[in-house]
Design a protein around this nucleic acid. Structure first.
Lengths: 198, 198
DNA sequence: GGAAATGGTTAACGGTCATTAACTTCGGCC
DNA sequence: GGCCGAAGTTAATGACCGTTAACCATTTCC
């Protein structure tokens, strides 16, 4: 885990606020003036940091997909040889991401089409690799599961884990640790059910 | 099941195409001219059938929430007294909806904020009732599950069941029946895991 | 100490788009 | 046969919004 102590750069502030706003009201629903206002500068000042509104979205989506894949690969390298432990580790990592970066998770599957062809291709490629990583592990843990079923199950479990943004305002939740544990159990339960009766 | 034999009215055509387009590119991403073109009339002709673009979205979202809730209540009435069977029935109904009306499912949790205050309140109220219906049943089947955990689990399973739109182009799927069966098993497995180790 | 880069500002431009206006077409009905 | 309402049409309007232009402050560095 790399923890940062230095202050976030203006660029990072902008990305963070843009992510929040995009997630709340959609890419087209947010104006550049709003994004600017969220970081204390106004409208066109953003163009000192980004080529345009599209560029912000692109950087966000590529960043997300990259982080997920990188984290997944790292975990795969660490838990070398133990599929059970690796599956748990992947689930844990995805949950951390979903809980800590809700806005990004929301963007991730909502605004992909707004990207330039090249960026969209890149994001999709990263996403695909991430899914394949999961599919391989799931099939090692549950060898009876056919590949299409495994892939569908992985997508479904992503949907499950990514459901946290919908959990109303953060109030009703039983606390972060308990939520993480619950999501973990739900995910493992889903996989187990798919893998046993196939 | 009420099956219709008469031709769809122009109004229904519009709603259907609008749902598809909104789901594909987002509410703000679709112009009225496009919606019109999709049903063979052009642009402002839509205003003979709807008060405005917002009105279409409102009718779609209220319709979805209403259908889900109505269907859920009907199932609750039918499977009287047998929580296990009712849970299966609810899952089955939700899966049917997710598989048959993908665009609507997508809209359902994506564009709620675009609504007028009153419509949004109505939709949320319908959604809440639907969730509560599930929560009650889940807690009857798994009495050890505390209420907040049950509610979170229900939301998570919704995320799981609603994941079908993300399953790439309909090609890779193992056929509708098999997909439905797999989703059902995943959902039951998730609930079982949450309910046993609480 | 001055030049240049950096990060802002406000004002203007241009395009897109929902909505309205004004006008047509046509099928049913007395 | 003439009226009328329903369902369209195109053209105009007005708002919004992303982007660019032109200009200013401040820091950095030779």
């Amino acid at each position: 885990m790399v923890t940062r102590t230095d202050a976030p750069t203006r660029r990072e502030q902008i990305l963070k606020e843009a992510a929040r706003l995009f997630a709340e009201r959609g890419f087209h629903g947010v104006g550049v003036d709003e994004i600017g206002a969220a970081v204390g500068i106004s409208g066109p000042g953003l163009y000192r940091h980004f080529a345009g509104k599209d560029a912000m979205l692109a950087e966000l989506l590529v960043g997300i997909s990259g982080q997920l894949l990188t984290g997944g690969k790292r975990r795969a390298a660490e838990a070398d040889g133990d599929p059970e432990a690796l599956l748990d580790s992947l689930i844990e990592g995805h949950i951390d991401f979903a809980l800590d970066d809700r806005p990004l998770i929301t963007l991730h599957d909502r605004e992909l089409d707004r990207l330039r062809e090249s960026d969209r291709k890149l994001v999709r490629q990263l996403q695909r690799q991430y899914v394949e990583l999961w599919v391989e592990v799931v099939r090692q843990v549950y060898p009876d599961l056919a590949e299409p079923a495994a892939r569908a199950s992985v997508h479904a479990v992503f949907g499950l884990l990514n459901s946290t943004p919908h959990l109303s305002r953060p109030g009703a939740l039983p606390g972060r640790a308990a939520t993480a544990q619950l999501l973990h159990r739900l995910a493992r339960g889903a996989f187990a059910a798919a893998g046993s009766g196939a």
